[in-house]
Design a protein around this nucleic acid. Sequence first.
DNA 1: CAGAATCCCTTGGGATACTG
DNA 2: CAGTATCCCAAGGGATTCTG
Lengths: 112, 112
Amino acid sequence: MIKETSSNALNKAFLLKSCRINTALDTISGRWKALILIHISEETNRFSLLKSALGGISDQTLGKCLKELERDGLLWKEIIAEVPVRVDYHLSEKGKALLPILVSLSEWSDMK
Amino acid sequence: MIKETSSNALNKAFLLKSCRINTALDTISGRWKALILIHISEETNRFSLLKSALGGISDQTLGKCLKELERDGLLWKEIIAEVPVRVDYHLSEKGKALLPILVSLSEWSDMK
DNA sequence: CAGAATCCCTTGGGATACTG
DNA sequence: CAGTATCCCAAGGGATTCTG
């Protein structure tokens, strides 16, 4: 198919694409992030609910994951001024757009 | 410890699905594996070619990645008894099936 | 309740050197 | 050419403790 003797445009396009793939994988890889996104999409969207739903994650790690997912634009925080304070997490459009891809991945992982 | 006041079927399905997603992510995450798969799909399928195409990977890490990808059924080795010995790597059906998902991921990572 | 601070351990991946 | 063997370091993630 594509030859490599000449570093053609297609090859470069693939290199570029692979870069983006790594960016994407960095964003969602790790032991918890995909699970967190799925739970939030299911309305399990508060710190303590997430913690018990995920089963085994530490406060530390959950906090860090949420912060990174927020920084990467996959979710946003809604801070509700009750007493005690309450925080709801919601998926952004980008976060929602990732869900079907996660479903594809889970289906793919069933392949023999 | 499974509890949740109403542990409904949907929740369990999602937990199961998220497990598979983590399996899938474990298989392809890391700094190199997705890139390796893409290069092999482009006929860059020998050890030394991969090494120079990837730019910066160590022998050690390339060897380990290839071994794990083979163990996970994404590729297979064709050993050609020339002198010096030659090895071609090829994607399995499962490996090929992953490519469109990687493309989706790279497109997704372009989202604002 | 929703986190932050600190400490520690495991693991991915690089550097270097060597083999069939 | 196609790897393997050792060694080492940075980063992810857990445990514990503390705060607004």
